[in-house]
């Protein structure tokens, strides 16, 4: 299932690269990133994947709205 995550303080292409790599390291696939909208679309098998994804995002200094 595809899920859109609203990310706070994502403002440039580097943020997109950083978060994409961090999320994919958890095993979740990133479908698209858009720093102007502050959105990342991920493809998850189930809701359980949200926990490590959120952790990975927060580890990089961002937060999920």
């Amino acid at each position: 299932m595809k899920k859109t995550l609203k990310i706070k303080d994502m403002h440039c292409s580097s943020c997109e690269i950083l978060l994409k790599e961090a999320i994919e390291e958890t095993g979740t696939k990133v479908v698209s990133t858009n720093h102007t909208k502050g959105e990342i679309v991920v493809d998850m098998k189930d809701e359980k994947e949200m926990v490590p994804v959120k952790k990975a995002i927060e580890k990089e200094g961002y937060s999920v709205a």
Partner: peptide
């Protein structure tokens, strides 16, 4: 170019 914030430095660091 296109280096404006901490995230950019982090990405370069990862490279």
């Amino acid at each position: 170019r296109n280096v404006s914030c901490e995230a950019c430095e982090k990405v370069i660091g990862r490279i």
